[in-house]
Amino acid sequence: MLRLPDFTYIRPRTLAEAAGVLQELGAEAMAVAGGTDVYPKMKRGQFTPRYLVSLSRVEEHRGIRREEARGLWIGAGETLTAVAGHATVRREFPALAAAAGLVSTLQLRNAGTIGGNLFVDTRCNYYDQSFFWRQAVGFCLKKDGDICLVAPKSRVCLAICSSDTAPVLSSLGAEAVLVSARGNRRVPLETLYRDDGIDYLAKRPDELLQGVWIPESSFGWRNVYLKLRRRGSFDFPVLGVAAALRLGAAGACEAVRIVLTAVASAPKVVEDAPRVLCGKPVDAAAIEEAAELAMRVSHPLDNADMDYWYRKRMTRVYVTRALRQLAEVGATTAGPDAAPV
Protein backbone atom coordinates (compact mmCIF):
# COMPACT_ATOMS: atom_id res chain seq x y z
CA MET A 1 0.00 0.00 0.00
CA LEU A 2 1.25 3.46 -0.90
CA ARG A 3 1.54 5.49 2.29
CA LEU A 4 2.22 9.06 3.23
CA PRO A 5 5.66 10.02 4.49
CA ASP A 6 5.85 11.53 7.96
CA PHE A 7 4.70 15.12 8.51
CA THR A 8 3.42 17.41 11.22
CA TYR A 9 -0.20 18.33 10.76
CA ILE A 10 -1.28 21.82 11.74
CA ARG A 11 -4.91 22.85 11.79
CA PRO A 12 -5.42 26.60 12.19
CA ARG A 13 -8.88 28.08 12.64
CA THR A 14 -8.48 31.15 10.47
CA LEU A 15 -6.87 31.94 7.15
CA ALA A 16 -4.74 34.62 8.75
CA GLU A 17 -3.38 32.10 11.22
CA ALA A 18 -2.80 29.61 8.45
CA ALA A 19 -0.99 32.24 6.42
CA GLY A 20 1.08 33.13 9.46
CA VAL A 21 2.08 29.52 9.97
CA LEU A 22 2.99 29.17 6.30
CA GLN A 23 5.08 32.29 6.44
CA GLU A 24 6.82 31.18 9.60
CA LEU A 25 7.60 27.66 8.40
CA GLY A 26 8.53 28.70 4.88
CA ALA A 27 9.38 26.19 2.18
CA GLU A 28 8.94 23.17 4.44
CA ALA A 29 5.23 23.86 4.82
CA MET A 30 2.40 23.35 2.42
CA ALA A 31 -1.29 24.17 2.65
CA VAL A 32 -3.82 21.40 2.15
CA ALA A 33 -7.58 21.65 1.70
CA GLY A 34 -9.32 18.57 0.27
CA GLY A 35 -6.00 16.79 -0.17
CA THR A 36 -7.00 15.10 -3.40
CA ASP A 37 -3.96 16.48 -5.23
CA VAL A 38 -1.59 16.87 -2.28
CA TYR A 39 -1.78 13.34 -0.87
CA PRO A 40 -1.19 11.41 -4.10
CA LYS A 41 1.76 13.69 -4.80
CA MET A 42 3.17 13.16 -1.33
CA LYS A 43 2.79 9.40 -1.72
CA ARG A 44 4.80 9.58 -4.94
CA GLY A 45 7.42 11.88 -3.48
CA GLN A 46 6.54 14.84 -5.71
CA PHE A 47 5.62 16.97 -2.71
CA THR A 48 7.84 16.60 0.34
CA PRO A 49 6.51 19.01 2.99
CA ARG A 50 7.49 18.50 6.62
CA TYR A 51 4.48 20.50 7.73
CA LEU A 52 1.00 20.33 6.34
CA VAL A 53 -1.18 23.30 7.11
CA SER A 54 -4.74 22.08 6.88
CA LEU A 55 -7.57 24.41 6.01
CA SER A 56 -10.18 21.92 7.16
CA ARG A 57 -11.05 23.83 10.35
CA VAL A 58 -11.22 27.21 8.64
CA GLU A 59 -14.72 28.60 8.14
CA GLU A 60 -14.12 31.94 6.48
CA HIS A 61 -13.35 30.46 3.06
CA ARG A 62 -16.71 28.72 2.82
CA GLY A 63 -20.04 29.79 1.40
CA ILE A 64 -21.48 30.55 -1.99
CA ARG A 65 -23.70 33.62 -2.05
CA ARG A 66 -25.09 36.23 -4.33
CA GLU A 67 -24.63 39.83 -3.22
CA GLU A 68 -26.48 42.49 -5.12
CA ALA A 69 -24.15 44.75 -7.02
CA ARG A 70 -21.10 42.75 -5.95
CA GLY A 71 -21.70 39.53 -7.83
CA LEU A 72 -21.36 35.90 -6.79
CA TRP A 73 -18.96 34.92 -4.00
CA ILE A 74 -17.57 31.42 -4.06
CA GLY A 75 -15.54 30.43 -1.04
CA ALA A 76 -12.34 28.58 -1.94
CA GLY A 77 -13.07 25.90 0.65
CA GLU A 78 -16.32 24.82 -0.96
CA THR A 79 -16.19 21.35 -2.46
CA LEU A 80 -16.42 20.91 -6.19
CA THR A 81 -19.67 19.05 -5.57
CA ALA A 82 -21.11 22.07 -3.77
CA VAL A 83 -20.07 24.44 -6.55
CA ALA A 84 -21.38 22.18 -9.31
CA GLY A 85 -24.70 21.75 -7.56
CA HIS A 86 -25.33 25.32 -6.45
CA ALA A 87 -28.55 26.70 -7.91
CA THR A 88 -27.22 30.15 -8.84
CA VAL A 89 -24.08 28.68 -10.35
CA ARG A 90 -26.12 26.26 -12.41
CA ARG A 91 -28.52 28.94 -13.59
CA GLU A 92 -26.11 31.77 -14.32
CA PHE A 93 -22.79 30.07 -14.90
CA PRO A 94 -23.45 26.62 -16.34
CA ALA A 95 -19.89 26.57 -17.61
CA LEU A 96 -18.63 26.65 -14.03
CA ALA A 97 -21.14 24.04 -12.89
CA ALA A 98 -20.00 21.86 -15.79
CA ALA A 99 -16.30 22.40 -15.16
CA ALA A 100 -16.57 21.70 -11.44
CA GLY A 101 -18.81 18.70 -12.13
CA LEU A 102 -16.38 17.27 -14.66
CA VAL A 103 -13.38 17.17 -12.33
CA SER A 104 -12.37 13.54 -11.78
CA THR A 105 -15.15 11.65 -10.00
CA LEU A 106 -17.97 12.26 -7.56
CA GLN A 107 -15.92 10.83 -4.69
CA LEU A 108 -13.06 13.15 -5.47
CA ARG A 109 -15.33 16.17 -5.92
CA ASN A 110 -16.86 15.46 -2.53
CA ALA A 111 -13.46 16.02 -0.95
CA GLY A 112 -11.69 18.33 -3.39
CA THR A 113 -12.31 22.06 -3.19
CA ILE A 114 -12.70 24.74 -5.83
CA GLY A 115 -9.67 26.49 -4.35
CA GLY A 116 -7.66 23.33 -4.74
CA ASN A 117 -8.76 22.97 -8.34
CA LEU A 118 -7.96 26.58 -9.18
CA PHE A 119 -4.43 26.17 -7.85
CA VAL A 120 -3.96 22.51 -8.76
CA ASP A 121 -0.36 21.62 -9.48
CA THR A 122 0.61 21.60 -13.15
CA ARG A 123 0.83 18.13 -14.64
CA CYS A 124 3.21 16.29 -16.89
CA ASN A 125 3.57 12.61 -17.50
CA TYR A 126 7.28 12.85 -16.78
CA TYR A 127 6.46 14.34 -13.39
CA ASP A 128 3.25 12.65 -12.22
CA GLN A 129 5.04 9.41 -11.54
CA SER A 130 6.49 7.57 -8.58
CA PHE A 131 9.94 8.27 -7.20
CA PHE A 132 11.11 4.95 -8.68
CA TRP A 133 9.86 5.89 -12.13
CA ARG A 134 11.34 9.37 -12.05
CA GLN A 135 14.62 7.92 -10.92
CA ALA A 136 14.54 5.45 -13.81
CA VAL A 137 14.06 8.17 -16.45
CA GLY A 138 16.35 10.66 -14.75
CA PHE A 139 14.66 13.36 -12.72
CA CYS A 140 13.15 16.42 -14.36
CA LEU A 141 13.29 20.14 -13.81
CA LYS A 142 10.09 20.26 -11.81
CA LYS A 143 11.28 17.83 -9.15
CA ASP A 144 14.75 16.62 -8.25
CA GLY A 145 16.30 17.13 -11.69
CA ASP A 146 17.81 19.79 -13.89
CA ILE A 147 16.40 19.28 -17.37
CA CYS A 148 12.96 19.28 -18.92
CA LEU A 149 12.35 15.78 -20.23
CA VAL A 150 9.57 16.95 -22.53
CA ALA A 151 11.82 19.41 -24.36
CA PRO A 152 15.41 19.13 -23.15
CA LYS A 153 16.28 22.54 -24.60
CA SER A 154 13.55 24.27 -22.65
CA ARG A 155 14.74 26.39 -19.76
CA VAL A 156 11.31 26.45 -18.18
CA CYS A 157 9.19 23.58 -17.03
CA LEU A 158 6.45 22.70 -19.51
CA ALA A 159 4.03 20.96 -17.17
CA ILE A 160 0.48 21.87 -18.10
CA CYS A 161 -2.29 23.71 -16.36
CA SER A 162 -4.84 21.01 -15.54
CA SER A 163 -7.55 23.00 -13.84
CA ASP A 164 -11.05 22.79 -15.27
CA THR A 165 -12.41 25.71 -13.26
CA ALA A 166 -9.55 28.19 -13.79
CA PRO A 167 -10.28 28.83 -17.50
CA VAL A 168 -13.99 29.17 -16.78
CA LEU A 169 -13.56 31.65 -13.93
CA SER A 170 -10.98 33.53 -15.98
CA SER A 171 -13.43 33.74 -18.86
CA LEU A 172 -16.02 35.15 -16.48
CA GLY A 173 -13.64 37.84 -15.26
CA ALA A 174 -13.53 36.46 -11.73
CA GLU A 175 -11.44 38.16 -9.08
CA ALA A 176 -9.53 36.30 -6.42
CA VAL A 177 -9.31 37.32 -2.77
CA LEU A 178 -5.98 36.34 -1.22
CA VAL A 179 -5.21 36.41 2.47
CA SER A 180 -1.78 36.61 3.99
CA ALA A 181 -0.11 37.78 7.16
CA ARG A 182 0.44 41.06 5.37
CA GLY A 183 -3.23 41.55 4.66
CA ASN A 184 -5.70 40.83 1.92
CA ARG A 185 -5.59 41.64 -1.74
CA ARG A 186 -8.12 41.30 -4.53
CA VAL A 187 -6.82 40.67 -8.04
CA PRO A 188 -8.17 39.44 -11.34
CA LEU A 189 -7.89 35.66 -11.15
CA GLU A 190 -6.17 35.36 -14.50
CA THR A 191 -3.27 37.49 -13.28
CA LEU A 192 -2.44 34.79 -10.75
CA TYR A 193 -1.25 32.37 -13.41
CA ARG A 194 2.21 32.25 -14.93
CA ASP A 195 3.27 30.24 -17.95
CA ASP A 196 5.92 28.36 -16.05
CA GLY A 197 5.26 24.78 -15.00
CA ILE A 198 7.12 25.16 -11.72
CA ASP A 199 6.40 28.69 -10.68
CA TYR A 200 2.91 28.61 -12.12
CA LEU A 201 1.20 30.88 -9.60
CA ALA A 202 1.86 34.60 -9.32
CA LYS A 203 1.37 34.64 -5.58
CA ARG A 204 3.52 34.16 -2.54
CA PRO A 205 3.42 30.69 -0.93
CA ASP A 206 1.99 32.16 2.26
CA GLU A 207 -0.92 33.75 0.43
CA LEU A 208 -4.09 31.72 0.71
CA LEU A 209 -7.12 31.93 -1.50
CA GLN A 210 -10.20 32.89 0.43
CA GLY A 211 -12.49 32.78 -2.56
CA VAL A 212 -13.45 34.33 -5.84
CA TRP A 213 -15.94 36.94 -6.94
CA ILE A 214 -17.70 36.57 -10.23
CA PRO A 215 -18.50 40.23 -10.81
CA GLU A 216 -22.01 41.49 -11.30
CA SER A 217 -21.03 42.55 -14.82
CA SER A 218 -20.57 38.92 -15.82
CA PHE A 219 -24.16 38.03 -15.10
CA GLY A 220 -26.09 37.63 -18.31
CA TRP A 221 -23.10 36.41 -20.30
CA ARG A 222 -23.62 33.17 -22.14
CA ASN A 223 -20.97 30.70 -21.05
CA VAL A 224 -19.86 27.20 -21.82
CA TYR A 225 -17.07 24.78 -20.97
CA LEU A 226 -16.05 21.84 -23.16
CA LYS A 227 -13.55 19.28 -21.96
CA LEU A 228 -11.46 16.80 -23.94
CA ARG A 229 -10.28 13.66 -22.24
CA ARG A 230 -10.27 9.95 -22.86
CA ARG A 231 -13.00 8.96 -20.41
CA GLY A 232 -16.09 10.63 -19.00
CA SER A 233 -14.68 10.55 -15.47
CA PHE A 234 -11.37 10.29 -13.58
CA ASP A 235 -9.34 12.00 -16.29
CA PHE A 236 -7.80 15.44 -16.15
CA PRO A 237 -8.47 17.68 -19.13
CA VAL A 238 -6.05 17.32 -22.02
CA LEU A 239 -7.85 20.29 -23.51
CA GLY A 240 -10.51 22.53 -22.06
CA VAL A 241 -12.30 25.39 -23.74
CA ALA A 242 -14.11 28.01 -21.69
CA ALA A 243 -16.03 30.59 -23.64
CA ALA A 244 -18.22 33.44 -22.45
CA LEU A 245 -19.92 36.07 -24.50
CA ARG A 246 -22.40 38.87 -24.18
CA LEU A 247 -24.86 39.37 -26.98
CA GLY A 248 -26.51 42.69 -27.64
CA ALA A 249 -30.17 43.16 -28.28
CA ALA A 250 -29.63 42.99 -32.02
CA GLY A 251 -27.79 39.71 -31.68
CA ALA A 252 -24.38 41.19 -32.18
CA CYS A 253 -21.54 40.04 -29.98
CA GLU A 254 -20.65 42.82 -27.55
CA ALA A 255 -17.93 41.03 -25.62
CA VAL A 256 -16.31 37.65 -25.66
CA ARG A 257 -13.63 35.77 -23.72
CA ILE A 258 -12.17 32.44 -24.72
CA VAL A 259 -9.76 30.73 -22.33
CA LEU A 260 -8.08 27.36 -22.92
CA THR A 261 -6.75 24.94 -20.39
CA ALA A 262 -4.16 22.16 -20.73
CA VAL A 263 -2.39 23.82 -23.64
CA ALA A 264 0.24 25.67 -21.61
CA SER A 265 1.37 25.99 -18.00
CA ALA A 266 -1.25 28.68 -17.42
CA PRO A 267 -4.82 29.08 -18.63
CA LYS A 268 -4.42 30.50 -22.12
CA VAL A 269 -6.52 33.52 -23.06
CA VAL A 270 -7.24 33.75 -26.77
CA GLU A 271 -6.38 37.43 -26.92
CA ASP A 272 -7.53 38.06 -30.46
CA ALA A 273 -10.94 36.47 -30.11
CA PRO A 274 -12.79 39.75 -29.40
CA ARG A 275 -11.23 41.32 -32.50
CA VAL A 276 -12.83 38.78 -34.83
CA LEU A 277 -16.07 38.20 -32.94
CA CYS A 278 -17.17 41.53 -31.49
CA GLY A 279 -19.47 44.01 -33.13
CA LYS A 280 -21.29 41.55 -35.35
CA PRO A 281 -23.48 38.47 -35.12
CA VAL A 282 -21.66 35.28 -34.20
CA ASP A 283 -21.83 33.65 -37.62
CA ALA A 284 -20.02 30.68 -39.09
CA ALA A 285 -17.26 32.77 -40.61
CA ALA A 286 -16.51 34.57 -37.36
CA ILE A 287 -16.53 31.32 -35.45
CA GLU A 288 -14.16 29.74 -37.91
CA GLU A 289 -11.79 32.66 -37.65
CA ALA A 290 -11.85 32.63 -33.86
CA ALA A 291 -11.30 28.88 -33.76
CA GLU A 292 -8.33 29.21 -36.07
CA LEU A 293 -6.85 31.88 -33.82
CA ALA A 294 -7.36 29.69 -30.78
CA MET A 295 -5.64 26.79 -32.43
CA ARG A 296 -2.68 28.99 -33.26
CA VAL A 297 -2.09 29.88 -29.63
CA SER A 298 -2.67 26.33 -28.42
CA HIS A 299 0.63 24.55 -27.83
CA PRO A 300 0.06 21.13 -26.37
CA LEU A 301 3.18 19.01 -25.90
CA ASP A 302 3.92 15.32 -25.69
CA ASN A 303 3.42 15.16 -21.95
CA ALA A 304 -0.21 14.18 -21.46
CA ASP A 305 -2.70 11.64 -22.73
CA MET A 306 -3.55 11.71 -26.47
CA ASP A 307 -1.23 12.95 -29.24
CA TYR A 308 -0.21 16.59 -29.04
CA TRP A 309 -1.05 17.33 -32.69
CA TYR A 310 -4.46 15.88 -32.02
CA ARG A 311 -5.02 18.08 -28.98
CA LYS A 312 -3.94 21.11 -31.00
CA ARG A 313 -6.32 20.21 -33.80
CA MET A 314 -9.11 19.64 -31.30
CA THR A 315 -8.65 23.20 -30.08
CA ARG A 316 -10.21 24.40 -33.32
CA VAL A 317 -13.02 21.85 -33.17
CA TYR A 318 -13.83 22.49 -29.52
CA VAL A 319 -13.72 26.28 -29.84
CA THR A 320 -15.98 26.04 -32.87
CA ARG A 321 -18.42 23.90 -30.96
CA ALA A 322 -18.31 26.12 -27.90
CA LEU A 323 -19.03 29.24 -29.91
CA ARG A 324 -21.76 27.55 -31.90
CA GLN A 325 -23.48 26.59 -28.68
CA LEU A 326 -23.22 30.12 -27.36
CA ALA A 327 -24.52 31.57 -30.61
CA GLU A 328 -27.62 29.38 -30.62
CA VAL A 329 -30.81 31.17 -29.71
CA GLY A 330 -31.49 30.90 -26.02
CA ALA A 331 -28.30 28.99 -25.38
CA THR A 332 -26.80 29.19 -21.93
CA THR A 333 -25.86 25.66 -21.32
CA ALA A 334 -22.79 23.60 -20.84
CA GLY A 335 -21.36 21.28 -23.42
CA PRO A 336 -22.25 17.72 -24.34
CA ASP A 337 -19.66 16.42 -21.95
CA ALA A 338 -21.33 18.19 -19.07
CA ALA A 339 -22.39 15.69 -16.48
CA PRO A 340 -25.74 15.84 -14.76
CA VAL A 341 -24.92 17.01 -11.28
Binding site: Y9, Y39, N110, A111
Partner: peptide, 27 residues
Protein backbone atom coordinates in the same frame (compact mmCIF):
# COMPACT_ATOMS: atom_id res chain seq x y z
CA UNK B 1 -4.19 2.24 -6.14
CA UNK B 2 -4.14 4.42 -2.99
CA UNK B 3 -4.04 7.48 -5.27
CA UNK B 4 -7.73 8.19 -5.85
CA UNK B 5 -7.67 6.69 -9.33
CA UNK B 6 -9.79 3.52 -9.07
CA UNK B 7 -12.66 3.88 -6.59
CA UNK B 8 -12.06 0.60 -4.78
CA UNK B 9 -11.64 2.19 -1.34
CA UNK B 10 -14.89 4.19 -1.44
CA UNK B 11 -16.59 4.67 1.93
CA UNK B 12 -19.30 7.07 3.06
CA UNK B 13 -18.45 10.02 5.26
CA UNK B 14 -21.56 11.76 6.54
CA UNK B 15 -23.41 9.90 3.81
CA UNK B 16 -21.24 11.13 0.95
CA UNK B 17 -18.96 8.77 -0.97
CA UNK B 18 -15.26 9.60 -0.70
CA UNK B 19 -12.01 7.80 -1.40
CA UNK B 20 -10.72 6.63 1.96
CA UNK B 21 -7.19 6.50 0.56
CA UNK B 22 -7.17 10.29 0.19
CA UNK B 23 -8.70 11.27 3.50
CA UNK B 24 -6.63 11.48 6.64
CA UNK B 25 -8.16 9.52 9.48
CA UNK B 26 -7.84 12.58 11.73
CA UNK B 27 -10.14 14.41 9.32
Amino acid sequence: CELGECGTCTVLVDGEPVYSCLMLAVE
